[in-house]
Simulated assay, not measured.
Amino acid sequence: MDMLAEVALCGWVFVLVGCCFFFIARKESDRIVQLWRRVLPPLTLLSLLAMSPALAKVAGRHWGEWGHLKAVLRDYAPRVRAFSSRADGALSEEEYARAKAWLLAQPVTFRFETEPEPVRIRLMRTVPPYLGVDFGQGQNAVFDPVTMLCVYSD
C-alpha cells in the first residue's frame, strides 16, 4: 500500500512538472495543447480519487489507534538504541539479544479494532527502526516511527 502511494505521488509530481513546462514552452495554442488542457485536469482528479483509499490509509497512521502505535514506537526506539555502543546505532548480536530480552520482560501489546488478535511490538532489526509490529499469523511489519511508512513487511 505504501509503495503504491509513493509511486502515485511521484508520478503525479513528474506529470505536473512536465505539463507545466510543456504549457510554458508552447506559446501557440494548437489542438494538442487544447486537448491536454481539457483532458489533464479530469484525469488528475480521477487518479486522485482512485488513490484516495491508499492515501487515506497511510495518512490514517498518525491518528487514533495508529497514533497510539506511533507513540509506542517513538517511545521505545530510543530505549532500544541505548543498547547500541556504535555511533550509527546498529546493534551487535549481543546488544540485540540484550535489547530483545529487555523488551520481552515488558511486553507491549494492544488491540486494533480491525485485528482479531492483539498485536505485539517486538524487536525485528539490528538497525533503526528496530521495532516491528507482530500482527499474528506470520504477518509482521516495520514502520518508520516518524512518517509511519512501512519499511518492511512479510
Rank of each mutant, 00 (worst) to 15 (best):
A101G: 02
A59N: 14
R79H: 14
Y96R: 04
R125H: 14
R122L: 14
D134R: 02
Y130T: 00
F112H: 10
A71T: 12
K57F: 11
E94P: 00
R122G: 13
F135S: 08
R122S: 13
R74K: 10
A82K: 15
A56Y: 11
M51W: 07
V17P: 03
F135H: 08
L48Y: 03
V17M: 12
F23C: 03
V72F: 06
W102V: 00
P129H: 06
L48D: 03
E28H: 09
T126M: 06
L73T: 02
L40N: 04
W36G: 07
E28R: 15
F83P: 02
M51Q: 14
F110E: 07
L43K: 07
R79Q: 15
I24V: 14
A105L: 02
P118S: 02
R79G: 12
V72P: 03
L16G: 11
V127E: 15
C20K: 05
V108L: 11
L48C: 11
K57V: 07
R74E: 13
P128Q: 06
G132P: 02
L35P: 01
F21V: 09
F110T: 05
V39H: 08
A99F: 00
D88W: 02
L55W: 12
D134F: 04
L35D: 05
A71N: 13
V17I: 13
S85M: 10
S29I: 06
V39F: 13
A56L: 13
D30I: 00
A97R: 07
L131F: 01
F110L: 15
D88I: 02
A90K: 04
V80M: 01
S29Q: 14
V133D: 00
A25V: 05
L45D: 01
Q106W: 07
V15N: 12
L73S: 03
P53Q: 08
L55E: 08
K27D: 05
T114V: 10
E94L: 05
R120D: 07
L46T: 07
F21I: 08
T126P: 06
V39S: 13
A77K: 01
Q106S: 12
F112Q: 12
M124E: 14
L131H: 03
L73I: 01
Y76K: 13
R26H: 12
R125Q: 15
D134C: 03
P116V: 08
R111I: 00
F23W: 09
L45M: 09
L43E: 08
D88A: 00
S29M: 11
E113R: 15
Y130S: 01
P107M: 05
R26L: 07
R111T: 09
D30V: 03
V33M: 05
Y96N: 02
C20R: 12
C20F: 11
V108Q: 09
K100E: 15
Q34A: 09
S47Q: 05
F135E: 08
A50G: 04
F21D: 09
L43S: 12
P118W: 03
K70A: 15
A97F: 01
D75C: 07
L69R: 11
Y96K: 04
D75V: 03
K100H: 09
A82E: 14
Q137K: 15
P41M: 04
V58N: 07
